[in-house]
Structures are given as C-alpha cells and as structure tokens.
C-alpha cells in the first residue's frame, strides 16, 4: 500500500470518528455534573492572591438553564502575598453560593454564564495589629458571584471546563472600616457528569 492510500485511509477513518462523535450530544437536561479544583483568586483591594479549593455541583434543568451550587475554601496559609496588618485580611475564609447558569452554544461545547447569590464566611482580627495577641471572630457576609466560562463534553462521563469569576462582599465585624471581599479568580480542570434520566428519542 502506497503512502497516498494510507493517508486517504487515515482521513476516511478519522472522518468516520468525527461523524460518530457528532451524533452523541452529552449536554442535555438531567445532566448532573461536578468537580473540584484549585482556583487561584486575587483579592485586588488587598493586592493579595490566595489559593482556593473550589467544588461545584450543577444540574441541567432545561437545554439552556441549570441550577448550581458551589463552595470555596481558602487553603490554609494559602496567601501568596502576606500582609502585616491582620485586621485587614481574613485569617480564614470560605464561601458558599447557589444560583443558576445559562448555557449558550450547540452540541458539546458550551459557553456558561452563572449568577449566584451566597454567603462568605471570614475570620477577622478584632483588634488593631498593634494588639498582640489579637482576638479573631467569624462573620457571615452577604455575597454574590458572577461567573463565565466554557465547557467541552468529550465523553459520556467527563468534560473539560475553564471559568473566570468575580465575587464581592463586605466583612462588617472589623476593627474600623469594613473589609471588601472583592475578588476575581480562575478555575479549570476535569469535570465529571452523568445523565440522570433517560429521554425518549
């Protein structure tokens, strides 16, 4: 067999694969997906970057609409830039959100938009930094998260995702002025999904 025949044969085989993949659409109502990843996040008012552990679960209720819940935990000692004023940045931080997603695009490659109200939990010093040791106190802060990203569903159980997010909130239980929790972050990785209901063809 000559090189030309091999190349033609390869293209024919590849075109068959593409055809067979086109027929399978994994993103559909009743799809349940979840993942956990590390999400670098920048608190830009504090010029501080932290590492979040981010986990989410999402259920597709309509071809374009999903319900989603997620949580972020700041990795212990995860600050990449430390501040000398502990009353200006949380010692520990976590947040939980629940909201909806809107999905654009056809077939298995989606553009995802999310809006999620939530609560941020922050542990802040309650004394000026000159007081040592300082008292710390947790507070629950109203927050919201806006998220945009893209997902590619390449198999029956797995997909890739990449997202950027912005969230905001204020810690009121502080020494003096309230502390802004405005932040943006990125998260990406491998997600897992499952079609939970059979649909009639």
């Amino acid at each position: 067999m000559g090189i030309h025949q091999k190349i033609v044969g390869l293209f024919l085989a590849a075109s068959t694969l593409v055809f067979s993949q086109e027929k399978l659409i994994y993103f559909e109502p009743s799809l349940l997906r979840a993942s956990a990843t590390i999400a670098p996040t920048r608190f830009y008012n504090h010029e501080t970057t932290v590492a979040f552990i981010n986990g989410f679960m999402e259920y597709v209720v309509e071809p374009k609409i999903s319900v989603r819940g997620e949580a972020n935990f700041m990795a212990p000692n995860g600050q990449l830039l430390f501040t000398n004023s502990p009353e200006k940045f949380p010692r520990n931080f976590a947040s939980i959100y629940a909201g909806f997603g809107y999905h654009l695009g056809k077939k298995n490659w989606k553009i995802d938009l999310h809006a999620e109200p939530g609560i941020a939990l922050a542990e802040m010093a309650q004394d000026p930094y000159v007081v040592v040791p300082s008292r710390f106190q947790w507070s629950a802060c109203p927050s919201y998260m806006l998220k945009a990203g893209s997902s590619f569903y390449f198999s029956k159980y797995c997909h890739f995702f990449a997202e950027i997010n912005f969230s905001n909130g204020w810690v009121r239980k502080t020494t003096l002025s309230s502390v802004s929790l405005a932040q943006y972050g990125v998260s990406a990785g491998l997600g897992f999904h499952l079609i939970t209901q059979k649909h009639d063809e």
Binding site: A140, C141, P142, W170, R172, K173, L176, S177, S178
Partner: peptide, 13 residues
C-alpha cells in the same frame, strides 16, 4: 439578610 456600615464606628444587620 442585609448588612451595612454606620460610618466606621458601628455596623448594622
């Protein structure tokens, strides 16, 4: 559930 500041001397829930 709403929180706000009263300048920088108090906060309200």
């Amino acid at each position: 559930y709403i929180t706000s500041d009263i300048l920088n001397y108090a906060h309200r829930t």
